[in-house]
């Protein structure tokens, strides 16, 4: 064995870092972005231009799209539209929340020691995921009241009360149908979340004297939440759009109100497009929030911080598939996680 002499004071040569290579895509992206900016600037400019160029653009626009753009503004001032958006939102939130709880209970039910609970949960998920939500909705609104009434044999019992509520309130019927449907999907999401947690967690909790329920509540579910939250956000966005089906049973939500508006003023295309803009605005805001939450959850593990601006850019412009070395390096070695 030889012992290396202590290093003498030799100035270390500077080691240059890696070169950032700019490939062909860089040029393409810059070129396309610039071209887009020029076209956009020109269009905006031409709107304010008083000279013939403006009328030329407008004429072209009006022949290819012969609809009243200004109507968008009018549509947004209709009070019934605002009421409808409220209804849409409230229904989506209520149905989603109930769906989350139904999903939680049926996911836990499927792992229960009680066979009856397992069978019930399994049947529920099987039937509600295996049939169209539209059919479920109509059946709830028009079929269930009849069934309940016949079960109650024409009496004035609780079943008749429920039947009456569903039959008279399209909101109640929509809420029940969408919640039940959502619960079946949430069940799978919750199950996947619970299964993603290492079994050692439940074992350690039990070894400390916790019961199954306490261990679930304190140890497993809080960890599973990180897995469950992102897909639940997607479900909520999806729910917001699915509420439009409830228009069929007469709920005054955004879609039905829009149909009524154009039945009145015959602006079919404009009204439907305006409603689409409204839906898109709502889902976009939710998607951005959702992406933000998802990234924050990931960050807590990787200790890399991203700004809202960063996330917005990623949301609208996307990000190419490049694995960033920082994120990987910041994770602790597998053995210690």
């Amino acid at each position: 064995m030889t012992i290396r002499p202590a290093p003498v004071d030799v100035p270390e040569p500077e080691l240059p870092g890696p070169i950032v290579e700019r490939d062909a895509w860089f040029v393409v992206n810059i070129a396309l972005t610039l071209a887009g900016l020029i076209v956009a600037a020109f269009l905006v400019y031409s709107l304010f231009d008083q000279r013939p160029i403006k009328s030329f653009w407008l004429a072209t626009f009006h022949t290819t799209f012969p609809y009243d753009i200004g109507y968008l503004k009018t549509y947004f001032t209709f009070p019934q539209v605002y009421k409808a958006v409220q209804v849409t939102f409230v229904l989506a939130i209520l149905a989603q929340t109930t769906g989350v709880f139904l999903g939680l209970f049926s996911a836990l039910g499927r792992q229960s020691r009680i066979a009856l609970l397992r069978v019930f949960s399994g049947l529920y998920i099987w039937v509600w995921r295996g049939t169209p939500v539209f059919l479920q909705l109509v059946l709830t609104a028009y079929g269930v009241p009849l069934i309940l009434e016949s079960m109650d044999a024409g009496g004035k019992g609780a079943l008749t009360q429920i039947a009456l509520l569903i039959a008279t309130s399209s909101f109640a019927a929509g809420y029940v149908a969408l919640s039940l449907n959502e619960g079946a999907y949430m069940s799978e999401i919750v199950r996947a979340g619970i299964e993603a947690i290492d079994r050692g967690q439940m074992e350690a909790a039990k070894a400390l004297g916790m019961t199954y329920g306490l261990a679930m509540r304190r140890i497993v579910l809080p960890q599973a939440l990180k897995v469950i939250l992102p897909p639940t956000g997607n479900e909520f966005i999806s729910m917001l759009k699915t509420t439009s089906l409830v228009s069929y049973i007469g709920l005054q939500e955004l879609t039905l109100v829009t149909l009524q508006i154009y039945a009145h003023n015959f602006k079919v295309v404009e009204s439907l497009l305006a409603a689409g803009v409204f839906y898109l605005a709502m889902t976009t805001v939710l998607s951005v929030i959702q992406a933000q939450i998802e990234i924050r959850l990931g960050e807590r593990r990787s200790e890399v911080r991203t700004s809202l601006a960063d996330n917005l850019r990623r949301f609208f412009l996307g990000a190419p598939q490049i694995r960033r070395a920082v994120t990987v390096a910041a994770l602790p070695p597998k053995e210690h996680r």
Binding site: K206, A207, L208, G209, Q223
Partner: peptide, 14 residues
């Protein structure tokens, strides 16, 4: 079980 402590090979901290 609460009267018996257990230490696991893979730690199983929360």
């Amino acid at each position: 079980r609460a009267e018996i402590g257990m230490v696991f090979q893979r730690f199983n901290l929360f």
